[in-house]
Design a protein around this nucleic acid. Sequence first.
DNA 1: GAGAAAACGAGAGCAGTGCTCTTGACGACT
DNA 2: AGTCGTCAAGAGCACTGCTCTCGTTTTCTC
Lengths: 233, 233
Amino acid sequence: MSAGRTARERVRAELTREITDIARRHLAVEGAAGLSLRAVAREMGMVSSAIYRYFPSRDDLLTALIIDGYNAVGEAVENADAARPREDHAGRWMAVCHAVRDWALAHPHEYALLYGSPVPGYKAPDDTVAAAVRDTVVYGRILADAHEAGALTPPDVLPPPPASFSTDALRVREVMPGLPDDLVARALAAWTGLFGWVSFELFGQFNSVILDPATAFDHTMRCHGMLLGLRSG
Amino acid sequence: MSAGRTARERVRAELTREITDIARRHLAVEGAAGLSLRAVAREMGMVSSAIYRYFPSRDDLLTALIIDGYNAVGEAVENADAARPREDHAGRWMAVCHAVRDWALAHPHEYALLYGSPVPGYKAPDDTVAAAVRDTVVYGRILADAHEAGALTPPDVLPPPPASFSTDALRVREVMPGLPDDLVARALAAWTGLFGWVSFELFGQFNSVILDPATAFDHTMRCHGMLLGLRSG
DNA sequence: GAGAAAACGAGAGCAGTGCTCTTGACGACT
DNA sequence: AGTCGTCAAGAGCACTGCTCTCGTTTTCTC
């Protein structure tokens, strides 16, 4: 990755990085709708058409920012998870929840780009999925660790999922090996609950109703963890 | 509302409605980003500047579409709720869930406009909140009905919310009178879980993983209902 | 009913956008 | 040394939101 062979490749990599850096700054300030190739070029002292040597279209630049965003939130989640002892499964879950929310609050426009409406007529998912699942992989590992340690003891108050769910559960189980179908279903509920909450809070659905979202968020995520069987110490 | 006094007011109301209708059609086809005032004017046989007599800016037109959208999903939810017997609280909850999801699948771009990223630099919430809470009011009424009937018997497996949650619970309780704080907290979890799921499904987060989202959705919402104490018959 | 006032559609125009094409210069390989 | 590919620059196209002006038409007021 670093130090391309020729000088041309080196300066090209550097300019590409500079473009994405400036674009990310513009994105953070005015959002995805206000990201302008010409403005980026202007700030770089280039003419607008020169940008197209590096990104074939505006959507490609946005895709690059999306991938960077997924990696950023994935890294934040990985770090939060790694900072907890491996056997503190409940603590790791809560750390992941707060990492997602904190990152979203710090980078609202980037979060909107990742988990909000798909802006430019449905992005190409092929390049992005690899980066998009980093946080999910961490989440799955927590559950798999807890299950392997026999620490996943969910309360027996929910109905089992229908048999037709098993084929989908098979695919989800790839990131949380060993979990039975009913726990896979609960894992989906908790995961969508996490992002549903963050989206509601960030997109203004809680406006003038929930004035202390941090408290309610923490409690809600703790409940989701309990339902997963992650009994906190 | 109907039949304004003068002929001018009548044609003005009709043209305003025609603009929003065409705009909604364009929105449904190409999304909010592709909505163009000039294209709407072109289809109406007007010149672009004439539109500004009816909507001072593109954002105002979008705001009108947002309000219409909130009313549409609110009406769908109200109808789904009304089609069930009043005492079938669990059935009403499931009907509301499916109404939200069905409407979202039928109007993906409109759903994205309402519950996705706030597009034009944060909309003015003042005009929209009145319409935005229609579905929430239905949801709250179901829970209040169930609670009043003594049918809200949630499993005792979750920790109580912290005391500092009570002031926020006070505001939420306005739409679900009588519910204690811990049930208000569960209501928030279920509500965000519903929209979190629909957003994940609609925005492509489930792509190539959950291939039968209808089944998983139904089961997940049933679980949310159980946790609320809505034991289905 | 005549005149003032407001509302209206049309048109030109400004500043901005994504994107394409061509031109001329520089760097990299044979 | 010469060829070839890459590069920045510029002009230009079609489009956008929005503003302003100019006649026309409708409404309100006297």
